[in-house]
Simulated scan of single mutants.
Amino acid sequence: MNKALVVAVCLYCSLTLAAAPVKLQVLPGQQQPVTLSRLHLNRIVTPFSAPQIRTIDQADIRIEGSVIYLSSQQEEPFVVYITPHDNEAHALSLLVTPLDVPPKEIQLSLSKQWQQKINHNKAVAKRFEEASDYQQAITEVLSKLVKGQIPEGYELSVLHQSDVQHCQQDGLIFDFSKGQQVQGHHFSVLVGTARNTTEKPLRFHEKNCQGSHTAAVAMWPNNTLHPGQRRELFILLNTPDYEAAPTVRPSLLTY
């Protein structure tokens, strides 16, 4: 065979292999090393219908359905956490090493044991929440949390700062820097603290922590804070239906 033809065939084979998707099964609590292109757009196919991504790297990130498109010109390795939209307790951890290679497609899947655990916990939380009416369910969830208990099927995770609820009231400092998120099926609860920075007692008003998905706000054991006093703050949110939400806002000028 012609030597030039052999070289061309081998080059074609190497490019074909480089372009083939890389399939990875990710285990809970383990960081999966991956290599991505430093100069091109990479495609990460996740097992989540509406994934969220967290990274300190200054990467260009776009999410389309279950797929994440990522590009970065950074030369040093960085960590990426990928979570489902409705449960921060489960995160796929990737240690990304950027290289001068062709664009990559990474196809991620969960281990069978991990998927079974997620499905089981969601089902248990759903039964717990639907065992009573809406208001009673909210009361029972908050009642367990203020006692230091986790409601059935719920999962505790660290609160990411991008999910922090904005609260504002004169004289009070709200702190979610070491906050918690407790995730169920229909509800998610954010836990932070409030501190009285004045020299007189203050009464916290729940309306100062309202958001688009806020269903209830509670301070334990009561809403009055004495000078310098700090109390835990619980903000219960309705879990939004991300799959039903439109991904594109139509322009009013098209009507």
Rank of each mutant, 00 (worst) to 15 (best):
I68P: 02
D163T: 04
Q30M: 08
I53Q: 01
E105K: 15
Q165D: 10
Y69G: 08
E206F: 15
M1E: 14
C10Y: 15
K3Q: 12
R38K: 13
S162R: 06
Y242A: 15
Q169A: 03
E76G: 02
L24Q: 12
A245Y: 14
T193K: 09
A123F: 09
E140F: 09
R43E: 10
I63E: 04
P227A: 08
A215F: 11
H160P: 03
S109G: 08
T55F: 01
R249K: 13
V6A: 13
E105D: 08
A131M: 09
W220H: 12
T224D: 13
S72Q: 02
V67M: 07
R43M: 08
A20M: 12
I138P: 03
I56Q: 10
Y242H: 15
V45E: 13
Y242C: 15
K178A: 04
P201T: 06
K126N: 11
P98H: 02
L159N: 01
S49E: 10
A20G: 07
A131W: 06
L159C: 00
A8V: 13
T247N: 14
P28K: 01
S37I: 07
F128W: 07
E152A: 08
S72W: 00
Q180N: 06
L11T: 15
P47W: 07
L15C: 05
F128Q: 04
R38N: 07
T97K: 12
P28D: 02
L252T: 11
S93F: 04
T55R: 00
P250H: 11
Q115R: 10
W114T: 02
K178P: 00
L252Q: 12
C209V: 06
K147R: 14
L253M: 09
L36S: 04
R43G: 04
G192E: 00
R249H: 11
V96E: 05
P102Q: 07
F174L: 00
G184A: 04
T224K: 15
S251F: 10
E199K: 14
K122N: 15
E130H: 08
A20S: 12
V96D: 01
V45D: 08
P227Q: 08
D133E: 15
H205L: 13
V158Y: 04
V146M: 09
K144Q: 14
A137K: 09
W220Q: 05
F234K: 02
R203Y: 10
V6N: 10
Q181L: 11
T224S: 14
L70G: 03
C167A: 05
L94K: 05
A131L: 09
Q113D: 05
L27E: 12
Q32N: 02
A123W: 11
A244N: 15
I61W: 01
C10K: 14
Q32A: 03
T97P: 06
D175C: 00
H120L: 11
S157Q: 03
L108W: 02
A59K: 00
A20Q: 11
S177Y: 02
V7Q: 14
D60F: 05
T139I: 09
K200V: 06
E105H: 13
P102I: 06
Q32F: 00
K200S: 12
S72E: 02
I118D: 02
L11D: 10
